[in-house]
Amino acid sequence: MMTATDELLTVPEVMARLKLGRSTVYDLIRTRRLTSITVGRARRVPAVAVRDFIADAIGEAA
């Protein structure tokens, strides 16, 4: 059974959650600041990776 912590998000869903543009999200993935996986030809971002990214960004800002 998949839980909320196992949820995989599409790039547009990540864009909406972070309120960032497509190229910025792909830059975060490319620079490994945002973890992602590839399923077939589709790029997916674990929801926990988005939460970790936000926590890291808050920590850097403090």
Rank of each mutant, 00 (worst) to 15 (best):
R44E: 03
E60D: 15
A61R: 12
A62P: 00
R41P: 04
V14C: 00
A4M: 08
G21M: 08
D52R: 15
R43P: 09
M1D: 13
E7H: 00
R51H: 14
V14H: 02
A55E: 15
D6R: 05
M1L: 08
M2V: 10
V39T: 11
R17N: 04
R41Y: 06
P12D: 03
E13D: 08
R30K: 15
V25L: 02
L34G: 08
A49S: 15
V39R: 10
A47T: 04
T5I: 00
R41H: 10
R17M: 02
Y26S: 01
V50H: 03
T31S: 13
V14M: 06
M1N: 12
V50C: 03
V45L: 13
V25I: 10
I58M: 11
L28P: 09
R22G: 05
T3H: 05
G59M: 05
T24P: 05
L8I: 12
V14Q: 04
L34C: 07
R43S: 11
G40Y: 07
A16E: 04
L9R: 02
V25E: 00
G40Q: 10
I58S: 02
K19C: 04
V50Q: 01
M1G: 14
R30E: 14
D6K: 01
G59C: 05
L28N: 10
A57H: 15
A55M: 10
E60C: 06
L34M: 06
L20I: 10
V11P: 02
T24C: 04
V25Q: 01
T10P: 06
A47E: 07
A42E: 11
D56T: 12
L9A: 04
T35L: 01
T38W: 03
D52K: 12
T31L: 12
I37Q: 10
L20S: 00
